[in-house]
Design a binder for these strands. Structure first.
Lengths: 186, 186
DNA sequence: CGCGCGATTGAGTAATTTCAAATCTAGTGG
DNA sequence: CCACTAGATTTGAAATTACTCAATCGCGCG
């Protein structure tokens, strides 16, 4: 309960009234492991805030191979942002790796929320900025480090991932085959 | 003159007074081809808006190899965002590929500007969001496409790059050696 | 003309992928 | 407790791909 409030208050304090108004813009949903929140080709009506559980944002290429753009764990915001903001079709899918509870907000409500609470615009700006920075770091690691280095950096940064997802999934995130990943620490 | 105004007005209209106040937060600077706006290890006092010219955001890895995170052309905002927002040392460098004119804004002024014009917060939110989306697309192409595919996508998206930068630079952006790039379309 | 820089080509080497087979592990039902 | 199964992981070997290093080519400029 109130993970969203705790999350927002990491950046700015809220009164009870403010929070309950903000909270009113969101819909709570639960999904089972393996369920899709977004499927490639769908419309993308929501951005999701992960209350509990674990998601993966994936892209299935022409040859059917699955690539993982990111894992979204507790307190993360995730969606196919391009499709969400442009109201287009998803090029990626968002799928549960565990039973997951999320808070959903639609594009209209997102704009209304920002209009009603300018400080939320500030909040989302911080989130977007740190998301952009994180993506840049990822590009940097893809360009500048070997898969083996990326593997140990990932485990250092998110030790819990090792427990929560299979190595095939980690390989799909790192951009190597599972066989190659398996040969790293032998 | 007034590239900044035209750029902001793509997203929201401004009165003359508003623009001249906003403009007052920025400092104009010019750099010669080859000059550094940021060097790895430096403090990063500014975010830069490219008025004219071309920059590259690069990372020099331990082995001395140069990786290009992005090219920043006219109308782009660029800096080492992590270092800028956290007031730390740059892990990347920002270097001119052509004579370049930029508008600079410091972190304090950035906050003051957003405080004085909440609509600028909205503006920067849109920029940060589209930056995040662009980075995600790039990750997707690094994971899902071969260097050869990335090469043709890049040229389709930014045909002018072919005229403006050497193939060695494109190779450093795509993440392959220049020899490999050279063997693609032969 | 000759220099310098970028681009190309060639050959050998290293790394990764692919496909196939073997092994391991957790959960199930007898 | 054991056998069995499905899924994940590991291993092996051949084939592919990209890299490195070196040499060559092409072109603009003093």
């Amino acid at each position: 309960m109130d993970e969203l409030r705790r999350h927002i208050e990491e950046i700015m304090p809220l009164t009870d009234l403010e929070f309950s108004t903000i909270n009113g813009f969101f819909i709570s949903k639960s999904y089972k492991k393996g369920a899709y929140l977004i499927q490639q080709g769908d419309r993308v009506p929501f951005t999701f805030f992960v209350v509990s559980g674990l998601l993966k944002l994936i892209y299935n290429d022409a040859s059917g191979k699955e690539h993982i753009l990111s894992f979204a764990m507790e307190d993360w915001w995730e969606t196919d942002y391009y499709a969400f903001y442009h109201e287009g079709r998803a090029t990626m899918s968002l799928k549960c790796l565990e039973d997951t509870q999320v808070l959903c907000i639609g594009l209209e409500d997102y704009h209304r929320l920002c209009a009603a609470f300018p400080r939320m615009e500030h909040f989302f700006l911080q989130k977007a900025t740190s998301g952009h920075i994180a993506s840049q770091q990822r590009i940097l690691s893809l360009l500048g480090s070997s898969a083996e280095e990326r593997y140990s950096m990932l485990l250092k940064r998110y030790p819990s991932l090792m427990q929560r997802v299979s190595k095939s999934q980690l390989a799909a995130y790192l951009g190597v085959s599972r066989e190659t990943l398996s040969r790293f620490y032998s």
